[in-house]
Design a protein around this nucleic acid. Structure first.
Lengths: 136, 136
DNA sequence: CCGAATCCATCAGGATACTG
DNA sequence: CAGTATCCTGATGGATTCGG
């Protein structure tokens, strides 16, 4: 029950034994991907796309605080990673819709878990922060 | 089946209906927390602490590439959020051990899912990246 | 051995203004 | 409407040095 049942681990990194960490080779890619989807907005965008396709402006409204620039960049990265599709309709008032790919949907479930976790535990976290903030 | 069955949503943000996004008030905190645990190292540290307590140096070895500075900062934040405990033994050769709290362990499962997902799908992602990279 | 502190580079990311 | 372009700032994070 480690993080990589499907992956072969050559020898395990150090000598810690069971499942220590990710195999060194994958480690790098895992890190990269982790803080790409874990960046400031990706998860929220994915979460918001759960309900179906959204247009650019709607997307921006659903993710409060995101700038046009970041929305564009985030969406483009997600598309590039194959997590969302971008469909442009060549109409008079331009329309572009973003939706999750199957790959994106599979990730979406995990993202949802994470968000649920945060919402669920933000009370405890706040508490802890208050504590340790006052007790250096 | 939205992300916040436990939380009351005042009215839903805009007019999208079902579960659109997180309620505006929580939204901010969710974003904060999301990119705190989603920062460059937190997830990996949490993942690595799965197997039990670790000393500073071991921790550093298990998370290849992390600098002392970032390890210290990350660990301190996690501690401050109540996800890990820091136990310093006042011995002649100083020893400090870090371990997951129950709260941290609950998050750890999700983190593991995420890492598993990445390891599982990094093939597809690489493919997609290659594609869209060549086809602007 | 475990860290804290300082210095410094980079760049993510926000605001704004402009285009097709 | 759906972006692109540009500028600018603060946070992120690496290397190194110092302390307990």
């Amino acid at each position: 029950m480690c993080a990589m049942d499907t992956a072969e681990r050559p020898d395990a990194a150090a000598g810690r034994g069971p499942c220590a960490a990710i195999p060194a080779e994958q480690m790098d890619f895992v890190r990269q991907t982790l803080d790409r989807i874990g960046d400031k907005w990706s998860m929220l965008v994915i979460a918001v796309l759960e309900a179906g396709a959204l247009r650019y402006t709607d997307l921006q409204r659903e993710v409060p605080g995101i700038s046009q620039r970041m929305l564009t960049l985030t969406v483009r990265q997600l598309q590039q990673d194959g997590l969302v599709t971008r469909t442009a309709y060549a109409e008079v008032p331009p329309r572009v819709e973003y939706a999750l790919t199957p790959l994106g949907r599979s990730l979406h479930q995990i993202v949802t878990s994470l968000i649920t976790w945060v919402v669920d535990h933000h009370g405890q976290i706040r508490e802890h922060r208050a504590h340790t903030a006052t007790a250096p």
